[in-house]
């Protein structure tokens, strides 16, 4: 009887696996197109069709995209921006989410709604006031001009999500820490944050990607080439009357390498909880 269950289990697993495999092939078709377009000549791509196989592989596209596109500048800026924005934003979001999830105080409901309201704000209408503000702060046109709006626009979402996940952490754990004499600050830092690693990792990934790909604010707030980020840099391959598709696609492939690496690195924390349970079991 036991072996019957096991056999059924295995069959189930195989069906799920094959389903996932088929689905992921569909999911990868657009990616395959990006890759195919990045490794061939422009004439080959346009005359023979974007879904045909390349006549000749043109690896040189990558080097050319890197140099004509001045990618080294944009890469440095985007990475620097992520290093500044992501830890800062998530940390202050976590700070705010903690009392909203776990402490009782006056106006907590109102403050939560106040932050939630930010989710509803369309970023487009704030561009002009933001540019004026950055000018007054004297950081318009520099990479630093992007940190204030990026952090601000990330907060409502991050506070909302973290509050939700913090609520899942049993309050008894915090209570135990407090009984041990820990301050609220210590309880937050030593109990809440370590237990929320999957949620924090999830937010980090979303935030890294959002920051890496943000286009509109970066486009409007920064006009100097030295301070531009990768998505705005990609515009350069699209001229007034024609696009250099192959270089654009090569540039895109180059540009997604670091984010894919970050994703693969961070996603191990998604299943951190699983192991804890497994050890116990």
């Amino acid at each position: 009887m036991m072996s019957d269950v096991r056999r059924q289990r295995r069959l189930e697993q195989t069906v799920i696996f094959l389903g996932l495999l088929a689905l992921s092939l569909i999911w990868l078709t657009p990616f395959a197109t990006v890759v195919l377009s990045a490794i061939r000549g422009q004439g080959d791509l346009l005359a023979r069709g974007v879904f045909s196989l390349p006549k000749k592989i043109a690896w040189s596209n990558f080097a050319e995209a890197w140099s004509t596109g001045d990618f080294s500048i944009y890469f440095r800026n985007s990475l620097l921006l992520i290093a500044m924005k992501v830890p800062l934003g998530i940390f202050i979001a976590a700070l705010a989410a903690y009392p909203l999830a776990k402490l009782r105080f006056r106006f907590s409901g109102a403050i939560f709604i106040f932050f939630l309201a930010g989710l509803a704000v369309p970023v487009q209408v704030t561009l002009q006031p933001l540019l004026v503000m950055m000018k007054q702060l004297g950081i318009a046109n520099s990479l630093f001009a992007l940190v204030p709006p990026y952090v601000a626009f990330g907060l409502p979402f991050q506070i909302f999500v973290l509050r939700g996940f913090f609520r899942l952490i049993p309050s008894e754990l915090l209570e135990a820490a407090r009984l041990d004499g820990a301050s609220e600050w210590t309880a937050f830092l030593r109990v809440m944050l370590p237990l929320s690693v999957p949620a924090l990792a999830t937010l980090c990934i979303i935030d890294v990607l959002a920051t890496w790909n943000e286009f509109l604010i970066a486009l409007v707030l920064i006009s100097a080439k030295e301070s531009r980020t990768v998505p705005v840099g990609l515009l350069q391959f699209q001229g007034e009357y024609s696009s250099q598709y192959t270089l654009l696609m090569a540039g895109i492939l180059i540009s997604i390498v670091p984010v894919i690496a970050i994703f693969i690195f961070l996603q191990r924390y998604f299943v951190a909880g699983l192991t804890a349970g497994a050890v116990k079991g």
């Binding site: 689905l23 654009l248 696609m249």
Partner: peptide
């Protein structure tokens, strides 16, 4: 699989639009 299903999110919008 997780990487594959999440991967479209890494593509910049210009790529999504074109492809």
């Amino acid at each position: 699989f997780r990487t594959i299903f999440y991967s479209p999110a890494v593509l910049p919008l210009v790529a999504v639009g074109l492809i």
